[in-house]
Amino acid sequence: MPATPLPPPPTDDPVLAGYRTPGGLVLDKVIDHLDAHCREFIAHSPFATLATADAEGWPDVSPRGGDPGFVHVLDAHRVVLPDRPGNNRVDSLRNVAVNPRAALMFLVPGVEQTLRVYGTTTLVAPEDLPLDLTEFGRAPLSVLVLEVRRAYFQCPKSVMRSGLWDPAKRIDPKALTPFGRVIKDHCALADDLPDDATIRAELAQEL
């Protein structure tokens, strides 16, 4: 069953008015549940972004990752996102506590399409769900349950343009400023931080 399509952009805006009306497939592909194709994609996805907004509408986008299928599909209308140990800012969780609307965008390495899922959320304790959500030897600290309102696959143009999965376009991490130096400068620290290899090894202990 198709989801209710979004309203067209206001045509009195001179910039938006320059865009052509989207074709039928672009609108008709939006559904209100997770079909077999959505479930298959989520089962293979090791990385997603979580978009939320606070009570005033200020947005936040948070990267989330794990083994393929780390986001669990409960049924056609519910997905489960465990919250793993992080920096304890919990920006996303603070947001959904006051504004339950959220969106997930799933990526699968080597695949140029992406999957977007929108809905409303509920934050629950891990023991409230009949699932073993242990990963990397740890249970999640909390779990976000998203009630699906819209889901659709995004065309691959942006990933094609970026060459995201093209090995020839990968850069040597050494081309960038070491992460420890970046944090030192951002935080105006007097002392140097460990080198990137040490930082990564420490983070690996907290997965």
Rank of each mutant, 00 (worst) to 15 (best):
L74W: 10
H44L: 15
V26C: 07
L81Q: 04
F106A: 10
R150T: 03
N87E: 10
P85I: 06
P68Y: 09
P7V: 12
L50C: 09
R89P: 00
C187S: 12
G86C: 09
V148Q: 01
D91T: 03
E56L: 04
T177D: 00
A102N: 08
N88Q: 13
G137D: 14
D83N: 10
G163R: 04
P63Q: 02
S142R: 15
D192N: 14
W165E: 03
T177G: 00
T49F: 07
E40C: 06
P100K: 10
A48G: 09
C38S: 14
D195Q: 12
P109W: 13
P7E: 13
L50H: 11
V71D: 03
L131A: 04
E40V: 01
P140G: 09
G18F: 10
G86Q: 13
V182Y: 01
F41Y: 13
D128M: 12
G24F: 07
E56S: 08
P167H: 03
G24H: 15
D28Y: 06
L193I: 06
R64M: 11
E206P: 00
Q113H: 09
R170C: 00
V108I: 06
V61M: 12
D128F: 05
L74Y: 08
T121Y: 04
L6P: 09
V73W: 14
E56A: 11
E40A: 13
F136P: 00
A55D: 08
R161A: 03
A43Q: 10
G23R: 11
T21I: 13
A204N: 15
V124L: 12
A36C: 11
R116I: 01
H37S: 15
G69Y: 05
P194A: 13
D128E: 15
K169R: 13
A17F: 06
P59C: 12
D195Y: 05
D13K: 14
W58N: 11
V159N: 04
E147M: 08
D172Q: 00
Q154K: 01
T122D: 11
D75E: 13
L104Q: 12
G163K: 02
G137P: 06
T21D: 12
V148I: 11
A51V: 04
R116V: 00
D91G: 00
A97I: 06
L115E: 01
H44R: 15
V145N: 04
P10N: 15
T49E: 08
R161D: 02
V96K: 05
A17V: 10
A17L: 06
P8C: 11
R89V: 04
L133Y: 02
S142L: 10
D166Q: 03
D91P: 00
P63F: 01
S142T: 04
Y118E: 07
L189M: 12
T4W: 07
F179R: 00
P140H: 10
S158N: 00
E206K: 13
I171P: 00
T134N: 06
D83C: 05
Q154H: 14
E40I: 02
A76V: 07
V117K: 06
G57E: 11
D35T: 04
A102W: 06
W58C: 05
F41C: 07
N88T: 09
P22C: 15
E56I: 02
